[in-house]
Design a binder for these strands. Sequence first.
DNA 1: TCTGGGGTCCTAGGACCC
DNA 2: TCTGGGGTCCTAGGACCC
Length: 426
Amino acid sequence: MKAIVDCNSFYCSCERLFKPELKDKPVVVLSNNDGCIISRTDEAKKLGVGMAAPYYQNKDIIEKNDVAVFSSNYHLYGDLSRRVMDTLRWLVGEENVEVYSVDEAFLSLDTIPPDQLQAAAVRIKKTVEEWTGIAVSVGVAPTKVLSKVANRLSKKDKRGTKGVMVLNDTSAIKQALEMTLVDDIWGVGRRYAMKLHQTGIDNGWQLSKMPEEWARKNLGGVVGVRLIKELNSIACIPMKDPLETKKMIATTRMFGKPVFEVTEIKEAVATYTARAAEKLRRQFSAATMLQVFVVTNGSRNEKYEYSPQSRYQYTTFPKATADTGELIRYALPLAEKLYQPGLKYLKAGVILSGLVPDSSIQSSLFTRDVDHKKRYLMDAVDNINFSHRDDMVKYLASGLKRNWKMRQEMRSKRYTTRWDELYEIM
DNA sequence: TCTGGGGTCCTAGGACCC
DNA sequence: TCTGGGGTCCTAGGACCC
């Protein structure tokens, strides 16, 4: 059996933890640049605040109802996420936890007898809440897809324990699937949902009865086949090895305001490269390919219409590297190539791929080996920036003024990761 | 009149997820 | 004045190989 544990309105819950006066009050958290609403509490949902809706379109409801608004504070969320995941590892054993996202983890519960699943799920929920202060929902079922269905229903469950649902017999599964629209099934996005409704398939139970060959043709090949199997309690999406590293690392941002000059684009690209390189070193990888992209939207003085266009350039390296300076040297010429004067730039990004373990970097015939020293330098820079302040030490190419930096006007303090922002008890 | 079969690797693009 | 950021997996099709 598998479980999915998911933190309720995670970002909002993190904010509430340090502002207890917000308990039972509507709260929303905004995306970078304060653009969209990316987390909202039940109270905010009830007021009609949409998910992923632009902030400015909801400003009216928010102001009228005194909704608490926060810019996203990833230092805080990341730290609390780690605490939740550590608790889960302690509860069921490290090898049985797959961290799926910042606020979700799959658990393998194969060692727990069926008649004890309910009690185990309740204990998991209670313990996480007591130890971290973050409320979670737990769904348990024979497959990952069904556990997601259970988790979703647990939030509205009136009969059982709210926030816990175990689906372990065929009739319970049938009933749960009948209550679940295809749109709400993990693996069915907007496109497929539309197609399914047109075919007359509206709920999960109907979908589970479709032949696999039909799914192969219409729902993305083997992905669709797996989905049907999972709905029929045949587990075929395995738990992932926790030691797996990422295959691609990206750092991309909207600018705080439109940018027109190549110097600013280059500063941003250098800054994002440095950030991506940090992530790269954190998982002990090195990259062999770097891609830069920019998003433009019309040109200077043109009336604003949102129809973004993106352009890419990439380069591959003779030898894998995790050195920020080297990566910036690869990135800047690409940024220059992409730049066309007169256009209005909204966003830029850097993507590192072709990742290999940094212990097995292939040396090239044409480079000298000064890499040990570089590695020590990078480690030192990372330590300083992590423990003190982002970009305390940075490359000059990243710029000094940085007019393009994103807006974060309502960010709370980083209560758990910065000495100078620690939570204070009066 | 007629032109094989079986692979691998890479990239772009589509779909999905939180 | 204005719409986030970071990932995964799969497929099709082209280039290339023997």
